[in-house]
Amino acid sequence: MLSRTAANLYWTGRYVERADATARLLDMGARMTMLPGSATRQDWLSVLKAAGVPLTESEEVGRREAVRILLLDEEGGSSVRSALTLARSNARAERTALTRQAWEALNDEWRALEKVPEAEASSSLPDYLEWAQKRAAAFRGSVETTMLRDDRYDFIKLGGALERAAMALRLLEVKYFALLPERDVVGGGRDFHQWNSLLFAASALRAYHHVYRGDVTAWNVADLLVLNRSFPRSVALCITEAADTLGRLALRYNQRTEAQNRAERLHARLADTDMDEVFADGLHEFVQETLKSVLDIHSATSLVYGF
């Protein structure tokens, strides 16, 4: 396969997941700021940080700005709209590598967010977010059901897995930032809502109760999002997927790669860790370190496959 094709498919996978995750983040932000007495500005700032939007501390961010930046912005890949557009343009360059269904999933209504006014987007936010998540789901579904299990499929999956892992880690960072000013009230009512929102953003509320059957605690939430392999968005599962995919590619091309080594190392490390250890060493440090490992897997992949 052409290296450029591999790169485009990989980024298609990544941007679809990013659009999906950004929609969830926005949803979470909207919920967090609905809480009584919430420090609105802080909450939105932490949401934007989680989405990787560069900001200065002094910036005033309210709901309107957040909706503009995370839903409607035209460029940059941080908004739902631009992530979907980038996913589509990467896919468009590889029309021949995708099935018609997978392409149509991205091409249908791709311009729907183009002319939406901010006010309208803000007042009907849930509808727009649901729409974006459906687009991502349609793409994933058509990839699963129509694409041959060859290297094209692998590169799409790899991009998706790495992006999901990174997004789960950033989500935990939001909580970290949100907690900063009020460390002393961990376990308070507001804290409970924040963890709840976070689970909501990860579409994990029901899963949480199903698995942990009790009160929402920081330990358990972090466990679900990071280590629990039964949860589809957990960092550990995403990294396992990435390692498996890189392993399949190495077999296809008869070449063991550094990317595969790195993914397997991270996989082993996550399998070896428990939450007590993570919290003892500091959640923030753990998240930063793991994010860096994910980035390293990305760099090694692009180097070995020439993109």
């Binding site: 290297d151 091309y253 020439g306």
Partner: peptide, 12 residues
Amino acid sequence: VRDGRVWRRTTK
């Protein structure tokens, strides 16, 4: 171009 021929960059 290399060695008098044209090549395409692939994942292999």
